[in-house]
Amino acid sequence: MVVKVKFFSAFREVFGTRERDYVIPDGARARALIEAMADQPERRAALLRGSNLHPHLVLLVGGEALSSRGGLEAELRDGDVLAVFPMLGGG
């Protein structure tokens, strides 16, 4: 299945693009997508700390926090859009 990933802020430089489609096995969980995205050491460092998601990340699937869908264990569907932000604050 195909999952579109949109990068924001500094992640655009790390990934060299604004968005990219990733092909992952049908029924795969978020972990598989993150592994596919972590294809270079710098990208891995931006996404993961050890085997967990980096605490500075805000990941949203269809506008919902990935963390509330189970984090790395979240089930993804074909056509999902993942947005990758740094943690932000303000307003």
């Binding site: 924001f8 949203l60 506008g63 919902e64 740094p86 932000l88 604050g89 303000g90």
Partner: peptide, 24 residues
């Protein structure tokens, strides 16, 4: 804390614009 340590200084509060849009 990431927000107070670095991100507000780097991005200001308007760093939220795209995030708030993505969450609808």
């Amino acid at each position: 804390a990431p927000v107070t340590k670095r991100l507000l200084r780097e991005m200001g509060t308007a760093g939220l614009v795209e995030l708030i849009n993505v969450i609808g």
